[in-house]
Amino acid sequence: MPRVHIPAPARDLTGGEVELELEATSVRRLIGALDERFPGFADRVLEDGELKPGLRVAVDGHVSAMGLLAQLEPGSQVHFLLAIGGG
C-alpha cells in the first residue's frame, strides 16, 4: 500500500499520526481515503476539487508534475509540500 506522510499542521486531524498506509491508486483517491478516515482533511489540501494554489504532491521524493492525477504504486511515498520558487 502507498504510504502518506501527514504534514505537521494536519496532525490535529489524525490524532498525531505521522505516517499512514492507505489503499489508493492515485493521489486523488488517496486524499479521498484520508478524508473518509479523518474528516476535514480534504478541505485542508483541496479547493474547488483541485490542490490548493501552490500546494504540491511529492511521490517518492520528487514533486510530481501530475498533482492529483499522479499514479501510486504499492510502495509509493506521498508528501504534501508547498511550491518552491527558485531564482
Binding site: 504534514p7 494536519a10 482533511f41 485542508r44 504534501f80 509540500l81
Partner: peptide, 16 residues
C-alpha cells in the same frame, strides 16, 4: 501597523 488588512495567517502545509 498592519500593512494589508486582507492578510490572515495561513498555517502550512495543510493547516488552518
Amino acid at each position: 501597523p498592519v500593512l494589508n488588512d486582507d492578510v490572515r495567517t495561513d498555517l502550512q502545509p495543510a493547516g488552518e
